[in-house]
Each structure stands twice: as structure tokens, then as C-alpha cells.
């Protein structure tokens, strides 16, 4: 998809790399310069002190531990959402009757954001890990369900019929025709689901921290909350934000690579 309306292609003389980093570098420098005008005891973050905070948090082990906690929750919660979403989605996609009956319920839950069910999760499971898992599972469930259902229901009917004319059993058709046909959709759903799951766990940890006076939940989200309300460490918060972003990017890239390897029949 190249630009159809290249009004200006004269900027070719500036190397691409330079253009790419120009704006981020300018902003970083401006931020640093601004921070240096502030008094020494300022709490305002600056790029230099963010780097220092990053080193400090890594060395103390706090950051790796919190990251592992959050990531572990996302994996488990995502797995729950994946199993439920794919199995129910396959049913919905394969059977109109199931779809007709379940869809109204699904559609009414969909506009309810994961964070809105957090209070219920806390009522049910307390402020520990299970509450976080259920929120992550809930968040990942919908993209998984909907893209699986869509992938399955859009399976080329001819392929199913072709398999039937070769005497392939129903179960094998499901495993050998419908699932592979729906795989691109399922993987897309997994990528989107993992993305929202990561956002959801941060939100959940943050909110659990904020609303239960710290609690004992742990994780990056709670770490951010502690920096906010106890140690008032804005540099630490910025470190956490960057880590959240890097992990999100990492997840996205990982799934894209997986898609390329698992779907070699697509150009």
C-alpha cells in the first residue's frame, strides 16, 4: 500500500533513519533541557533520571519480579480466555442454532469493559491473583470468541463438501478442514486478545492497588500505583510505562511472527 498522492517526495535527501528519529530525539532533548531548569529536589521525571531509575529497579529485582508476575497472569488468563473463546466460537461458527441462542447474551456483555467487571471480580475472588486472571480471561475471551466464530462460519462450504465426498468423518472435517480454514482468524483473535489482556492486567493491578490500599497483588500495575501514592517516584512510573509499551510491542511482534510461520499458505 504505497502512497497514491505523493505530494512531496523531495525529502529523499535526508536519510530515512534520521527522519525517523528526528522527532523522538528532539522531544527527548527538550524534555531533558526542561527538567534541568527545575530545582534539584524536583519530582518531575527527566530522561536521565528515568534511565537511572530503570537501572536501579532492575538491579533491585523489583522490576523483573513485577514484570514476571504481570506476564504470568496474562499468560494464564489469556489461556483461559483462549480455551473458552475458541471452543465456544467454534460451536457458534459451526451451528446456527447455537449462534442464535448465545449471540444475544454475548452481544449484551460485549460493551461492558473488562474494568467494569473488576468490582465483581474483587467481590468474588478478593484482591489477589484470581481477580486479575478473571479480568484478563474476560478481556481476551471476546476477541477470541468472535474471530473464531467468524473464521469457522466463513469456512468455504466447498471445502467441507469436498471432504465429505472423500468420505471424511465429521470429526476429521472439523480437525482437518474447519480448524485450518479458521486458523488465520483464530490467530488474529489471539493477537488482539493478548493485546487487550495485557492492557487489562495493568488496569486491574492498578485499580486493585488503588482501591484496596495497596493490597498484595503485585505486578507492574501495582508497582505503578505504589510509585504514585507511596514513594511518589515519577521516574519509576515512566519506567513502568515504557516497560508496558515494550511488552505490548513484543507481544504484537511475536504473534505476527507466529502468524507468518503458522500460516505459510498465505502470501
Amino acid at each position: 500500500m504505497s502512497a497514491t498522492l505523493a505530494l512531496s517526495s523531495a525529502g529523499r535527501r535526508t536519510p530515512d533513519m534520521l527522519r525517523a528519529i528526528a522527532l523522538p530525539i528532539t522531544l527527548l532533548v527538550a524534555w531533558q533541557l526542561w527538567a534541568m531548569t527545575l530545582p534539584d529536589d524536583t519530582r518531575a521525571p527527566s530522561p536521565a533520571s528515568v534511565v537511572a531509575a530503570f537501572v536501579r529497579l532492575c538491579a533491585s529485582g523489583n522490576l523483573p519480579i513485577s514484570l514476571a508476575q504481570s506476564f504470568g497472569r496474562v499468560l494464564v488468563g489469556f489461556a483461559i480466555g483462549l480455551v473458552l473463546g475458541v471452543s465456544l466460537g467454534t460451536l457458534m461458527g459451526a451451528s446456527r442454532a447455537v449462534r442464535r441462542n448465545i449471540e444475544p447474551i454475548i452481544e449484551s456483555f460485549r460493551p461492558i469493559a473488562p474494568m467494569a467487571v473488576l468490582p465483581i471480580a474483587i467481590l468474588w475472588f478478593g484482591t489477589g491473583t484470581p481477580a486479575g486472571l478473571s479480568i484478563v480471561g474476560y478481556a481476551a475471551f471476546f476477541p477470541m470468541l468472535l474471530s473464531t466464530a467468524q473464521g469457522v462460519s466463513r469456512t468455504d462450504r466447498n471445502l467441507v463438501q469436498a471432504a465429505r465426498t472423500m468420505g471424511v468423518s465429521r470429526f476429521r472435517i472439523l480437525a482437518k478442514v474447519i480448524v485450518p480454514a479458521a486458523l488465520p482468524s483464530i490467530l488474529l483473535g489471539a493477537r488482539l486478545g493478548m493485546g487487550v489482556a495485557w492492557t487489562a492486567i495493568i488496569a486491574a493491578e492498578l485499580a486493585v492497588g488503588a482501591k484496596s490500599g495497596g493490597g498484595s497483588s503485585g505486578g507492574i500495575g501495582q508497582m505503578m500505583f505504589i510509585f504514585y501514592s507511596y514513594s511518589i517516584d515519577m521516574n519509576g512510573i515512566v519506567v513502568c510505562m515504557i516497560v508496558v509499551g515494550v511488552v505490548a510491542l513484543f507481544i504484537d511482534r511475536l504473534f505476527r511472527i507466529a502468524e507468518r510461520h503458522l500460516i505459510p499458505w498465505r502470501q
Binding site: L7, S8, A22, W198, T199, V244, G245
Partner: peptide
């Protein structure tokens, strides 16, 4: 419309995009 504008701004967008809105909450609270 402009390749050049895109070349300058797009990397910044790509840097910010993975940071979810939620993650901004503590800083924004400050």
C-alpha cells in the same frame, strides 16, 4: 498525503501506540 510528514511523525506514533491509555493513568494523576 505527505510522505515527508509521515516519515517524521510516524515513528513517534509507533513509539507511543503500544503504551496503553491505562498505563498513563498514574502519571496523569500527578
Amino acid at each position: 498525503l505527505s510522505e515527508r510528514a509521515n516519515a517524521y511523525i510516524d515513528p513517534m506514533v509507533e513509539v507511543l501506540r503500544p503504551i496503553s491509555g491505562i498505563a498513563w493513568i498514574p502519571l496523569a494523576l500527578f
